[in-house]
């Protein structure tokens, strides 16, 4: 990979080229910086070549956004998970389940009881 094939420097190639010429860099220096750029990390101090400020800000903004978003997602998932298993919600689930099951079972049982009476009365033998 050549020095100028780095997307950041390709976009701002002329500035980088001028900077390199002004500082009379050797081929060895260029190789070292090229290696640094491959592993460029805006939070790491000590780099002599930095991309333009707005790129750095964009990178920092997106890095922060990504971190925030993932933290928020994790927090939301955890709160949903906690809500599902919290004593309050499990009590609500238990109450609703028992209520529905009881209403159904009792009303069906009463229906079967009356159906039994009905069958005994339509029986021709009695």
């Amino acid at each position: 990979m050549s020095f100028l094939s780095n997307p950041l420097l390709e976009a701002h190639g002329q500035d980088a080229q001028r900077l390199l010429e002004k500082q009379r860099l050797t081929r060895q220096d260029m190789d070292v910086w090229e290696m640094n750029l491959k592993v460029y990390d805006p939070t790491r101090p000590g780099l002599t070549i930095r991309p333009p400020a707005f790129i750095v800000r964009l990178q920092e903004y997106f890095a922060g956004f990504r971190a925030n978003l993932s933290q928020r997602l994790v927090r939301a998932c955890r709160s949903v998970e906690r809500a599902g298993s919290s004593p309050r919600f499990s009590l609500l689930k238990a109450t609703l389940l028992f209520m529905g099951a009881s209403f159904f079972a009792y009303l069906l049982s009463v229906g079967i009881h009356e159906a039994g009476h009905y069958l005994s009365r339509v029986s021709p033998r009695m």
Partner: peptide
């Protein structure tokens, strides 16, 4: 382990039998 699906199914069954009894019996 309680699930919302089971609770809502039970409620739906109860609602169904109440509606059937009120509507047809």
């Amino acid at each position: 382990q309680l699930r919302w699906r089971d609770a809502l199914t039970a409620i739906a069954l109860a609602a169904a039998i109440v509606i059937v009894q009120l509507a047809f019996f």
